Amino acid sequence: MACALQVRDGFLQQLGLAMKEGHSLPVDLHSELQSCFTGTKPTPTVPFSLLRKLHRFLRKEGFPVYLHELLEGAEIFTPEVKLPERNPELVARLEKIKAKLANEEYRRITKNVNCQQINRHGTLGDLARQVRSVKALVVTIFNFMVTVGAAFACAYLGSQYIFTEPAACVVSAVIVASVVGLAELYVLVRMMEGELGEM
């Protein structure tokens, strides 16, 4: 937090000119100002408390020069804040906690990775599983086509006893095959939902 002003060299010169005109500073105020300017710092700093005293004195005595004129070009001085050193036990404990959290996060990310199953070309078990799934898919498609084809053939042959025109027989066979196909699709979808639910 700012507690002083860095003033220019003209501060004392202007104050000295004002003193020559018949005014004089009290001894304690003059000594405090001198001590601010005789330090080893390259730029003299004057604390706010001293500036308040000087301001009160200038107003009380009716000086021809104002404080803001004396402080022209001054800059606020903010001392460097020194952070307290951290407790080494606390730092070590925080490092332990960070490492533990990082390990837990790593384990959570890699929990579904099994190094023994990772293979560039896959294992024979993977190949057998894929062959089984392809075989089941081929059998299902073949079964669907045979069922729909058989339904169409049966409906076509059966409708010949009812209708004499071939167009009516074909239309009734298509309707029956469509109904059987939709029923077969419904059963397939329900079966796939059951398999996905078990996984």
Rank of each mutant, 00 (worst) to 15 (best):
V189D: 02
Y156E: 03
K20H: 11
R52C: 12
L54R: 02
T147R: 11
H23Q: 06
L101I: 14
H30C: 02
R52Y: 15
S133A: 12
E21F: 09
P64S: 04
M191S: 00
S133C: 09
S49R: 15
Q14V: 13
L137R: 07
T78Y: 11
L188S: 03
E72D: 10
G125T: 04
H121Y: 14
I175M: 14
M199A: 10
F77P: 00
K111H: 09
V27S: 01
H23G: 00
A167G: 07
A74N: 03
A173G: 02
T78C: 02
L137V: 08
G158H: 08
L182I: 15
V131Q: 08
F144M: 10
Y161W: 15
E95K: 10
H30L: 10
V176F: 15
F163T: 05
V171K: 09
L17V: 15
M19Q: 03
T43H: 06
A150F: 14
F48A: 01
A18W: 07
C169F: 05
V148Y: 13
S178C: 14
P47Q: 06
S49I: 15
A150K: 07
V171S: 05
P42R: 10
R52W: 14
S159K: 06
H30M: 03
I118N: 01
G22P: 01
Y156R: 05
Y161E: 13
G181D: 01
Q117D: 03
Y186T: 06
R59N: 14
F57W: 15
C169D: 03
L17R: 05
I76E: 03
N119I: 11
E95M: 11
L71T: 08
M1D: 02
H23P: 02
Q130G: 03
C154S: 02
N119S: 11
F63G: 00
P79R: 06
K60I: 12
T45K: 10
V134P: 01
P84D: 07
N143E: 13
I162Q: 04
Q13G: 08
S24V: 07
N119K: 15
I175R: 12
V171A: 09
P47L: 14
R132D: 14
V81H: 01
N114A: 00
R52V: 15
E89N: 08
F142A: 09
P42F: 07
E75N: 09
G125S: 04
Q117F: 13
V176D: 05
T40L: 04
L157A: 08
I76R: 01
T164M: 11
D126L: 09
G73C: 03
T123I: 12
A167D: 11
Y156L: 14
N143G: 14
S31E: 10
L54D: 03
V91A: 13
Y156A: 06
T164Q: 10
V46N: 08
L94F: 10
E21I: 02
M191I: 13
T147W: 12
M19A: 01
P42C: 00
N119Y: 12
A151E: 09
N114Y: 07
